[in-house]
C-alpha cells in the first residue's frame, strides 16, 4: 500500500521548468531515495510534496488523500515532515527552542528530553543559539526537530551535504533507527554509495524527469545508476 504517490508532476518557476512529468511512490515503512545531479529537480519535488511550492500540474496523494497544492502547515500536521537542504535551523533560537517548534502541532507533552538523550551533543548545547552550532550539529538538530514532529513520512534533502564521513555515518544511523521504528523515508542524495546500502528503492532524476527506477538490490553494482545520472548511452541498455 503506497503511503505517498506523486503522479505526473510538473513544476516551474516563472519561465524555468524544474520538474516535468515526474511520478514516484513511497510505501509504508520503506526507505526510498532520489538521486540526481544538480538542478535535476529533486528539491523542487520535495518542496511540492511538503506544500512549499505549488505545482503547475500533477497530483500528490498521501495516505489516500489528495494533498496537491495544500498548505505546508496542514501537510506537516497530517504527518509529513521535510528536512530541507541546507540546515534550516532558526539561528537566534536556542537548540531547545528549535526543538520545541517541532512539537507545537501536537497537543500532548512532547518528548524533547527523550530526543535529547539520543543526541548528547545537542543536550550539552541546549541553551545555545542554534546558529552557533557546527554544521554537523545543525544537521542533527534539524533531524531531531523533524523527529519531534512525529511524522509518518520524513522527507530528507541531502543530509550528508558538506559533512565529514564520520558525521554522515551518525546521521544515517539515526535515519535507519527511525525506519526501524516504522517511519517511511524519502531521502534525496547526490552520492550513491550510502544510498545503495540503505535504501529499498531508488529513483534517478535528471532534467526534471525520472530516468531510472528500481530496487537497490538490482542496482547494486552502480553502473546503471551512473548511466542514468550522467545521461550517457541511453539507448544501449
Amino acid at each position: 500500500m503506497a503511503l505517498l504517490t506523486v503522479e505526473n508532476l510538473h513544476v516551474s518557476y516563472g519561465g524555468v521548468t524544474a520538474v516535468r512529468g515526474l511520478s514516484l511512490s513511497v510505501n509504508e515503512g520503506e526507505v526510498v531515495s532520489i538521486l540526481g545531479p544538480n538542478g535535476a529537480g529533486k528539491s523542487s519535488t520535495l518542496a511540492v510534496i511538503a506544500g512549499g511550492v505549488a505545482p503547475r500540474a500533477g497530483r500528490v496523494t498521501y495516505a489516500g488523500q489528495d494533498i496537491t497544492g495544500g498548505r505546508a502547515e496542514e501537510i506537516a500536521r497530517s504527518g509529513i515532515s521535510l528536512v530541507p537542504e541546507g540546515r534550516h535551523v532558526f539561528a537566534t533560537l536556542t537548540v531547545e527552542e528549535n526543538l520545541a517548534v517541532g512539537t507545537y502541532m501536537h497537543k500532548g507533552k512532547a518528548d524533547i528530553a527523550g530526543v535529547l538523550e539520543r543526541f548528547p551533543r545537542l543536550k550539552e548545547r541546549r541553551d545555545f543559539p542554534a546558529g552557533r552550532l557546527s554544521g554537523g550539529e545543525q544537521q542533527m538538530l534539524v533531524i531531531a526537530r523533524a523527529m519531534l514532529a512525529k511524522p509518518k513520512l520524513m522527507l530528507v534533502d541531502e543530509p550528508s551535504l558538506g559533512l565529514a564521513p564520520l558525521i554522515i555515518d551518525q546521521v544515517y544511523d539515526i535515519l535507519l533507527d527511525l525506519r526501524r521504528q516504522g517511519m517511511s523515508l524519502l531521502i534525496v542524495e547526490q552520492s550513491t554509495s550510502r544510498i545503495l546500502k540503505h535504501a529499498d528503492r531508488i529513483y534517478v532524476l535528471r532534467g526534471g524527469a525520472v530516468q531510472l527506477e528500481d530496487t537497490a538490490a538490482n542496482l547494486r553494482d552502480g553502473e546503471a545508476i551512473k548511466r542514468a545520472y550522467f545521461g550517457f548511452d541511453e539507448g544501449a541498455a
Binding site: A50, L82, F90, T92, V101, Y104
Partner: peptide, 21 residues
C-alpha cells in the same frame, strides 16, 4: 512567541514544522 520568532527567521521552515502561517 517562540513560533513567531521562528517564523520571523525562516517563515517557510516554520510552516514545514506545522506553524500556522
Amino acid at each position: 512567541g517562540v513560533q513567531m520568532r521562528a517564523a520571523a527567521e525562516d517563515f517557510r521552515m516554520a510552516r514545514y514544522l506545522g506553524v500556522r502561517g
